[in-house]
Amino acid sequence: MLPGASRNATASAPGPFTLLGIPGLESLQAWLSIPFCSMYFMALLGNLSLLLMVKTEPSLHEPMYLFLCMLSLTDLVLSSSTLPKLLAIFWFGRQPIGFSACLAQMFFIHSFTAMESGFFLAMAYDRYVAICNPLRHATVLTNAVVAKIGLAVVVRGVVLFFPHPFLVGRLPFCKSKVIAHSYCEFMALVKLACADTAASRGYSLSLAFLIGGFDVCFISLSYALILRTVCRLPSKEAGLKAQGTCSSHICVILVFYTTAVFSFLTHRFGHNVPHAVHIFIANVYLVVPPTLNPIIYGVRTKKIRDRVVVLVQQCGV
């Protein structure tokens, strides 16, 4: 148990908590498990295949594919932090979750979501340099620089969200320990506390706005500059190639941020949104991007497409 979790033990005796899955859709949970299980399997297969492909193919050891590997690792952790427990609830009714396990799940979800956002920003910067300053791409984004950017993204996610488990761990839970959610989300836990949580809420809200706002602003700026450069290219074929490369990035980014922002705003301000819809979308944004990322990048990126064709031919298919 984390430090501080034992305080006010007489009032709270933390854990285990009970996760309800998707409240309001209990009769459909067995059916919902089919698409969620399928997407989780595709996320595992797609991201692991992408990692193996980049590792074994020297021609893919470039900044874009290295950042893509970092994104794939993040997707694997993010989806594996929630989907196995969700499926256990759907299939076996295993709703209880220990207090320490709940805090760990909360930390992984929030920190790796921040990392995912950071890697989208890193990939947008890579595309900006590659298209707007192609002659400097190799000197600006060396392997050392790529490693430092990746480390900075990881450190940001870990350091900024490290206080979350301690903020929750020191709260007294003298009310119900039933979480009307399918995973341990920070705001869902804080709402169960019988204490003043204004400071904790304020910290979490500020982090979400700062990280999300910073990343979205600079991602948008990068693609605006890319679009301006593409429009000025003399060769139509070069412009179409650049647009094709960036369109896959934009598709993935839109899916991630649209569902994440909806879930974030609904949890805090959308009191009129049906709870089942909110929880369903909250699960979608943790499983759909990890499923789509390797598919979209694989279909839209020529080098990966070509490598897949070679592997299929080698297998005699």
Results as ranks from 00 to 15, higher is better:
residue 123 M to N: 09
residue 169 G to L: 04
residue 224 A to K: 07
residue 222 S to A: 14
residue 149 I to E: 01
residue 271 H to M: 08
residue 311 L to G: 07
residue 270 G to C: 07
residue 206 S to A: 15
residue 259 T to G: 00
residue 151 L to N: 05
residue 278 H to E: 10
residue 162 F to N: 01
residue 167 L to H: 10
residue 290 P to F: 06
residue 235 S to N: 04
residue 66 L to Q: 12
residue 141 L to R: 03
residue 4 G to V: 13
residue 195 A to I: 10
residue 196 D to I: 05
residue 73 L to W: 13
residue 46 G to K: 04
residue 203 Y to L: 00
residue 134 P to N: 06
residue 42 M to V: 14
residue 118 G to Y: 12
residue 113 T to E: 03
residue 309 V to G: 00
residue 178 V to L: 00
residue 314 Q to L: 15
residue 272 N to D: 15
residue 309 V to S: 06
residue 121 L to K: 07
residue 46 G to Q: 05
residue 51 L to G: 01
residue 243 Q to A: 10
residue 147 A to T: 11
residue 163 P to A: 04
residue 82 T to M: 09
residue 80 S to G: 02
residue 185 E to V: 14
residue 215 D to T: 12
residue 155 V to K: 00
residue 122 A to T: 03
residue 145 V to L: 06
residue 140 V to Q: 02
residue 197 T to S: 11
residue 67 F to K: 11
residue 89 I to G: 01
residue 53 M to F: 08
residue 312 V to D: 05
residue 284 V to R: 03
residue 281 I to N: 05
residue 228 R to V: 14
residue 277 V to R: 05
residue 123 M to V: 05
residue 250 I to A: 08
residue 204 S to W: 12
residue 148 K to G: 00
residue 307 R to C: 14
residue 314 Q to W: 11
residue 44 L to K: 04
residue 103 L to V: 10
residue 83 L to H: 04
residue 114 A to K: 01
residue 193 A to E: 14
residue 29 Q to L: 08
residue 257 Y to N: 09
residue 161 F to C: 06
residue 31 W to P: 00
residue 3 P to M: 02
residue 165 P to Y: 09
residue 70 M to H: 10
residue 311 L to C: 10
residue 170 R to Q: 15
residue 79 S to L: 07
residue 41 F to A: 15
residue 164 H to T: 14
residue 84 P to V: 04
residue 308 V to H: 11
residue 198 A to C: 05
residue 43 A to D: 08
residue 37 C to I: 11
residue 227 L to P: 03
residue 199 A to G: 03
residue 246 C to H: 05
residue 287 V to A: 00
residue 182 S to K: 03
residue 39 M to G: 02
residue 149 I to N: 01
residue 32 L to R: 05
residue 100 S to H: 06
residue 225 L to E: 14
residue 246 C to Y: 04
residue 22 I to V: 13
residue 227 L to D: 13
residue 10 T to C: 06
residue 165 P to L: 04
residue 71 L to E: 08
residue 74 T to K: 04
residue 134 P to A: 02
residue 285 Y to A: 00
residue 2 L to E: 01
residue 92 F to T: 07
